[in-house]
Each structure stands twice: as C-alpha cells, then as structure tokens.
Amino acid sequence: MRPVALLLLVALAGCSTIQLGETLGDPNATAPTLPLDLLWERDADGAFGPSPAQVTDRYVVVGTRNGEVVVIDRESGRIEGTGEFGDSVEGQLAVSPDGETIYVPTAEQDGGVVAYDVRRGRRVWRWLDGGIQGGVVRLESTVVLTTLDGRVVALTADDGAVAWERPTSGTAQYQSAPVRLGGDVLVADDRGRVVRIDGATGTERWRAEAGGPVYAAPAVADGAVYVSTTRGGVVRLDAETGSAVWSIQDEQALRVSTAAIGGDVLAVGFSDGTVRGIDVATGAEQWRYRGEGSVTAAPVWIGDRVAVGTLDKRLVVIDGATGGEEWSTELRGRVKSALAVGGGLLVALVEPRHVVAFHTAP
C-alpha cells in the first residue's frame, strides 16, 4: 500500500485514548448556588457546536468541531481521555443507562454516529449514512437520530442495526436535537414541523406547526412541549395531542434559544440580548432582563436563579422571579453553546475552545 493511502486509512479509522477503566458515572442534575467561583478551565483543542456538555457525578464530556470527544475529571479538570471520531461533532451526545457507552454524532455529509465503550476503550459499532447536526437521544433499547437530509432513524443500541426509519419529507432538514418524551421521541425541523414519534415503531403520534424554523431543541416538562423558532416565536403544545396551548411572537424575527424550565416560569434567551421569563400556563411575560450581548445559547436554572451565557463574553446569573442581575463574570470568549449543570457544577463552553466549570464558592 502506498504511504499516502496508508495515512488516509489511519485518519479515517480514527484513534482514541478514552479508556477510563470505569463508567462515566450517573447523571447528576445538582446545580451550584451563589456565590459562584471558578473551579477549573481546560482547553479542549477544538471549537464547540450549540449543544451543552454532558455532566455526570464523575466526568464532564464534550464534543468538538475537530471531531474529538474530550472526557474531563469533574473535580480536578484533568483531561482523562480524548477520542477522535473523524468529523465535526456538532450535536448532542448520548450516554447509555449504565454509563459505559457514549453515542457520538458527526455532522459531515458522510457522517453518522459511533457507539464507543469508554470503560474498555473500544468502538462498539458505527453507522455512517448521513450527517447529524442536532444530535442523538438514547431511548430504552434504541438510539434515535435526525439527519441533515431530513430523515429520522432509530438504531438498535446493542449493534447499530436500523430498527426503523422515517424518510425525508420534502426539503426539510433537522438542525435541532431530538428529545425524549417518555418512550417516544420528539423532533422538529427547519420548516417548523414538530412531530411526536412512537419510539418502538417509528409511527407518528401527532404533528404540529411551530410557526417558524426550529434550530433549538424543544423543551419538555409536565405534559407540555415548548418550541422556540428562529422567527421570534415560542409555542406551548400539549404533549399528548400536539394541540397549541399558547404562542408568543416578537415583532422582530429574532433567534430564540431552547427554553429552560423552572417551575412555573420559562427562561428563554433572545438574540436581541434579552432573557425573558414567561409564565408556563399563559405565555405572559413576567420579567425581562436586557444585557449587552446577544443570547442564543440555552440558559439553565440553578435553584431559583437563571444562568445565562452571552455573546459579549459574560456569564450572568439573574433572579428567576424578577429578572434582576445578581452576579456576573467576564469570560475569555463568547458563549454560543447551551450551558449545563450537574454534580454541583455549572459548565460553560467558551470560544474559542475552553471548557469552564464553576462551583459554589467555599
């Protein structure tokens, strides 16, 4: 074999130093409280897509646009392993219930998803039949993904075989991540169509219109689905029927983030620099925070407060009842990826390529 061909083969195969000897640990939604303090900051050697980090009680896991997955120790910030998966990792990763396997989506035209055993350090299976921008979600026995060419595909979690597939519908693409809804999956495309799909069979349960293209993942809680659009709209749908309960529409065609749900208030970021508190029952605006930088990354609740990352390089914590600013700090770069909480940490993915973890100040 010629040297150039051999190098190409090695590059396509990828390599990994992720071999933890243990599982990733349990998902942990515990958030820090004010005052916050910087715990650690690490260079991930690659930029990030719009999705948040995965946080467990042991590790912080992130995908990068240079095709790597980076596993970071939650306490020390030490990088415990990196894996090369070939193409840009833009979307949401998924983790198996036992914490042993991560499912890594890649976004290039010849992309797909790789199942990787982090404990043993080996690839379990690979499916390469379409680029994935939004990400993947793990159901009971399947991994569901949405492709840039408009398909919804369920793969058997054990071996990556296709369990069912819904073909493309016109010219629609999926930019947002699929969302688990019980045993079903919820998908929304860039034509504004929202569909609830039976996770076992791929059968459509209902279909609704969001009123604009959807690039941010829907949010689900307490029998309701909240969908944000790139045209300044937010709509609440009934999770069982898909019928609209209420909708709001800004006068401007603003980019709207995924809604963060905190009790009876949604916290939603808008690209005009505002974060708005919206009553979940009525859609009425309860408060409005206005910062200097655009807010396109999904905020996150930390107790009764809302943490927000902005495009003017700030991390801000605002009162969830009034919208008043309570704490802020300057970061080294813009925040375009959703924030994440877990294991007592607040984790921000900061341009150009840094993972930053805050915890409650001693």
Rank of each mutant, 00 (worst) to 15 (best):
D189S: 09
G99Q: 07
V179F: 14
V194S: 03
V60C: 06
V225E: 09
T322E: 06
V144T: 10
G160D: 08
R126H: 06
V136G: 04
E285P: 00
V95W: 00
F270V: 01
T201S: 11
A357H: 11
R314T: 10
A29S: 13
V136Q: 09
V306C: 06
V316W: 08
V268A: 02
G111D: 08
L315T: 13
T296D: 08
T171C: 00
L7G: 08
V308K: 07
S88H: 11
T30K: 11
V152R: 04
E22G: 14
V162N: 05
L145D: 05
D312G: 08
E330M: 04
V275Q: 11
V60H: 11
V89D: 01
W40D: 08
P218Y: 15
L128F: 13
V62A: 01
P3V: 10
D73K: 04
L6A: 08
G202D: 01
L315W: 14
L8S: 07
L139G: 01
D272K: 06
R236S: 13
G233S: 15
V144L: 02
Y226D: 04
G269T: 10
A13R: 15
Y103H: 03
A44K: 14
A284I: 03
V275R: 07
L93C: 02
Q133L: 08
T201Y: 00
T171S: 05
L20E: 08
P32T: 05
Q133W: 15
E100Q: 15
V113C: 03
G46F: 15
T296I: 15
